[in-house]
């Protein structure tokens, strides 16, 4: 992307839309639906939104927007502040880098890659908590959250494709 396009109106509108959807995902994620210790963990909806946007609209998945959303999520949901945002930003950058090639693959391959990245995000967050000598959550709960996130990603893909007609970016002309 050229510097002249940094503040292009179409890009700013897309970033605003992305941030609105991200905030909505955080609020849904934080809604108090189960306060018992054995309640099913909420899916990482923000990751789903960011993963979808980063692969379909990499040019409007602004680094600072992802950082701001991740930080708000960490602060609101009491996740280890900094750990969630760090893994989210790195995952978004990785998926942005793969977006061109990923569009040419079938959906199963795309989904498996998202599942792999989501799994790595969860594992890295867990490792960070252990490295900082904080009490780590049970692995069983993390696996349940990962599975819930994968199910939520499918829902996010269906909703966003239906709502915004978002398709894969066209391959770059060489």
């Amino acid at each position: 992307m050229e510097p002249s396009q940094w503040f292009a109106p179409w890009r700013l509108v897309q970033i605003a839309l992305f941030m609105g959807l991200g905030l909505g995902a955080i609020f849904i994620e934080a809604a108090p639906l189960g306060l018992t210790a054995n309640a099913y963990p909420s899916p990482d909806l923000l990751f789903c939104v960011v993963a979808f946007w980063a692969t379909r609209r990499p040019e409007s998945t602004a680094l600072l927007a992802v950082f701001a959303l991740g930080l708000v999520r960490d602060l609101i949901t009491d996740a280890p502040v900094g750990g969630g945002v760090l893994t989210l930003v790195l995952a978004a950058e990785f998926l942005k880098a793969l977006s061109q090639g990923l569009g040419r693959r079938n959906f199963v391959t795309q989904f498996l890659l998202i599942a792999l990245v989501s799994g790595i995000v969860v594992l890295v967050q867990w490792a960070i908590v252990i490295a900082l000598l904080a009490p780590p959550p049970y692995l069983f709960d993390l696996i349940r959250q990962w599975l819930a996130t994968l199910a939520a990603y499918l829902a996010v893909v269906l909703v966003f494709r239906g709502l915004f007609r978002m398709r894969w970016p066209k391959p770059a002309v060489v």
Partner: peptide, 8 residues
């Protein structure tokens, strides 16, 4: 709101 996730 609740923490939602398994960390807290």
């Amino acid at each position: 709101a609740d923490s939602g996730g398994p960390f807290l």
